[in-house]
Design a binder for these strands. Structure first.
Length: 765
DNA sequence: AGCACGCCGACT
DNA sequence: GTCGGCGTGCTC
């Protein structure tokens, strides 16, 4: 496994040393950062198997490295007794972990990732083991309250000052375990005051205890029993069941429109898995990982662990340990939860499989779906991919018979899908009515929906007020000095902001170039739309939801709750409202501009547009009143929009796949994207050109390999870095991977210039 | 990533 | 003559 041993010494070994080989226990170590490669070390007897800190595969160690023997952290990936020249190996200095962080299977998975995604094994290992676990994030002291024995005995005869004190004391005496002040106050419905009084009078006592900091937030959730499945759901469940029992890996696409009851199928499949004494991992997009989602699982299973990026180190450490101990039946989490250290995994579910947040956009640039499939294959378990609009990669796999397809064609209780109509924005009859964002048909539909006491959702995928600030006299456009992108005007703060970096500046009073005072605030953002809606419907309540208005923690939930209770008539916002929950009273959804993603230089532009329209359309027609969707567009004849209007995913998939087949785009071919960036345009471009040349050399004679570029990236300058991209395509990934490895192996880019290699890229900007 | 080795310019 | 510039290569 490790590279051939090279001499540690410059001079040749003396003759008697040549045969100085002996059987020794050797650990192969991969460094967490720094040098790539695998290095052999001798394991001293003290670390071989005594005490807690003995060495085993999957634990971390500190080893002397380099001429200066500085101590570096590495992962033990193999441990074996073999014939080595002991004099040429150094010794492992220290074992860091009291237990293995990675099982042999997980080590193999990370190794596969490093090979597949062309990154360092150490880099993958550091991404797989959360920082909180690596840092052994800590514990915290809490003050716990209890009732002393002597008080408990005389409880009946006590004279108490206040009813609050009496209630608190009674509750604490009846409680099985000690409580904190906050917990007791919460349970009784009083403040800390009466409890302090009780403490002062010695009726309750306090003692300090060292606990894991987050042990306290265990919420008790009311249990729910399984729902009765309809015929389609039962069919899907049976198929998953059969796959579970086969003990073989099986990829399955659960294809169901929004509201068709996919989650209930997951829940009951997980029940079977738990019944076998195994664990399940449920992967959901970051944005859907809300308290409600988690509650839904907590209501059905005892041990539910949650993993996501907004947790503290301590919380994540605690969840990881619970999972590793086998205390958890279900792991619910975002992308990185695919690495959860479940001891006996039985099933992986990925909900909203098409979501882009499953692809990590920094190294290691893995896609959780593909890693999950790799893991499922290694463990011989099913992988269920749920979506109303599956990725064409997964869909194609079902057509090829590689994945099974499970259909949930009907919404539960057979509600029809909403009518979807397009509004052609090129038609002057629709827009003559106003210069704003809302066309005449949409306005009329809103009036009608609100009159019938329905609620309205409006989707606009651009935040801010005006998306470009321009001088009509000379054509000057306010641009970010660091990014070469136009600045967006935010009216609330009265500021121009770059949406790609932190730059912001006050809006100009006069044009900086020609001094004209007539600056125009063009382009429609959610803030401007909000102003227009409020002006048009002054008698109705309206709320805006985008990353600007949702800065504060919990505000997202607060708005959704208000909307659900009918306190808001019109909800408008960006993507994030397209992925909300079930709102039965929404009778109209308006898509302000369906074209925003349609003309981006990205082969998935159509797919994204279809998904967006289909998703937001799913927000309506969930109640008795039914619902309709109006899609405003300049390209009503575009296939993605026509298909979305008809709720016809299969038509969309068929046509888009045909186009991709012609152009050899995924899933018919593989793609690697390389981004070169640096602070000097000439250097970055020269590096990109040099790299392209090497790539062409590496691929001469290879069949069907295409190398495009270098070209300026879709965002040519970002955060003061100039960006150039190279796109590689071929029918299979292997020649591309070896070309990139060959072209970059012994090649050092100038300092300050960076390469990002993205295998199976998702983001083409 | 760090650290040493190495082969060229301005200083005691 | 030497001190030190950072290019190149290696680390078990």
């Amino acid at each position: 496994m490790s590279k051939q041993q090279q001499s540690l010494f410059d001079d040749e070994p003396a003759e008697w040393e040549v045969d100085a080989q002996s059987q020794r226990l050797v650990a192969t170590i991969v460094l967490g950062e720094g040098a790539t490669g695998e290095y052999d070390y001798l394991v001293p007897d003290t670390l071989s198997d005594r005490g807690d800190y003995f060495l085993e595969v999957g634990r971390r160690v500190r080893v002397p490295f380099g001429r200066s023997n500085r101590k570096v952290v590495g992962y033990c990936v193999t441990l074996e007794t073999k014939l080595v020249d002991a004099a040429r190996l150094k010794l492992v200095a220290e074992v860091i972990d009291a237990s293995a962080l990675l099982s042999p299977a997980m080590l193999r998975l990370t190794r596969w990732m490093a090979d597949y995604y062309l990154c360092k094994w150490g880099e993958v290992l550091e991404a797989v083991v959360p920082a909180g676990v690596r840092l052994l994030a800590g514990t915290r002291k809490v003050t716990l309250l209890s009732v002393p024995e002597d008080v408990r005995d005389t409880l009946g005869q006590l004279k108490l000052g206040s009813p609050q004190q009496r209630k608190a004391l009674a509750h604490l005496a009846a409680s099985e375990r000690s409580l904190t002040t906050a917990q007791l106050a919460d349970a009784v419905g009083c403040t800390a005051g009466p409890i302090k009084q009780l403490l002062k009078r010695g009726l309750i006592e306090a003692h300090e205890k060292r606990v894991r900091s987050s042990e306290l937030d265990e919420t008790i959730v009311e249990r729910e029993s399984p729902l009765v499945l309809n015929e389609d759901q039962q069919h899907a469940l049976d198929a998953i069941d059969a796959a579970l029992e086969s003990g073989k890996p099986r990829g399955m696409v659960l294809f169901g429109v929004t509201g068709s009851g996919k989650t209930e199928v997951y829940l009951q499949a997980i029940e079977r898995v738990v019944g076998y004494g195994r664990q399940a991992i449920v992967l959901v997009p970051e944005i859907s990982l809300t308290p409600q989602t988690v509650r839904r699982f907590r209501a059905r299973f005892d041990g539910v662990a949650v993993l996501h990026s907004h947790q503290s180190h301590v919380e994540r450490h605690r969840e990881w340990q619970r999972i590793a101990r086998g205390d958890v039946q279900v792991v619910v989490g975002a992308r990185s939860a695919v690495f959860a250290p479940t001891p006996n995994l039985g099933l992986i579910v990925m909900d909203e499989e098409h979501e882009s947040s499953f692809k990590q956009d920094s190294a290691p640039r893995y896609h959780a779906r593909d890693v999950a499939w790799q893991r499922a294959q290694a463990e011989g378990i099913p992988l269920v991919l749920g979506s109303a609009t599956p990725s064409l990669e997964s869909w194609y796999k079902t057509e090829q018979g590689e994945f099974a397809r499970l259909d949930l064609p009907r919404r539960v209780s057979n509600r029809p899908l909403p009518d979807v109509l397009t509004v052609d924005l090129r038609d002057p009859a629709h827009t003559r009515f106003s210069r704003g964002a809302i066309s005449r048909p949409l306005h009329q539909a809103m009036v009608a929906a609100l009159r019938d006491e329905g609620q309205v959702i409006l989707l606009l995928n651009r935040r801010g007020f005006a998306t470009h600030v321009q001088c009509p006299a000379c054509g000057y456009v306010a641009e970010c000095p660091a990014c070469d992108l136009s600045l967006t005007f935010h009216r609330q703060e009265s500021i121009l902001r770059c949406h790609y970096c932190d730059h912001h500046e006050p809006p100009p009073v006069n044009c900086p170039d020609c001094k004209s005072p007539a600056i125009r605030y063009g382009g429609m953002g959610t803030q401007k739309l909000e102003a227009e809606v409020r002006a048009r419907f002054p008698e109705h309540t309206c709320e805006r939801m985008d990353t600007d208005s949702m800065r504060k923690a919990g505000s997202h939930q607060r708005v959704l709750d208000k909307f659900c209770q009918g306190e808001i008539d019109i909800l408008l916002g960006t993507q994030m409202i397209a992925k909300g929950l079930d709102f039965p009273n929404v009778t109209l959804v308006g898509v302000i501009n369906a074209d925003t993603a349609l003309h981006l230089p990205d082969f998935r532009a159509g797919e994204r547009t279809f998904q967006l329209v289909a998703q937001v359309a799913g927000r309506t027609g969930r109640g008795e009143k039914g619902g309709r969707v109006l899609v405003q567009t300049l390209s009503p004849e575009h296939m993605a929009i026509r298909a979305a209007v008809r709720h016809d995913f299969e038509m969309f998939a068929e046509e888009d796949l045909a186009t991709r087949r012609q152009l050899c785009y995924p899933p018919f071919g593989s793609m690697i994207r390389i981004l070169v960036r640096g602070p000097q345009e000439e250097t970055a471009q020269a590096v990109a050109e040099g790299l392209t040349q090497r790539l062409r050399q590496e691929t001469t004679g290879e069949e069907g390999v295409r190398i495009m570029g270098p070209a300026a990236a879709a965002i040519p300058k970002l955060r003061d870095h100039y960006r150039f991209q190279i796109q590689l395509q071929a029918p299979t990934l292997d020649p591309l991977r070896s070309a990139v490895t060959g072209a970059t192996a012994k090649w050092k880019v100038p300092t300050g210039t960076f390469l990002a290699v993205d295998v199976d890229p998702w983001d083409m900007m």
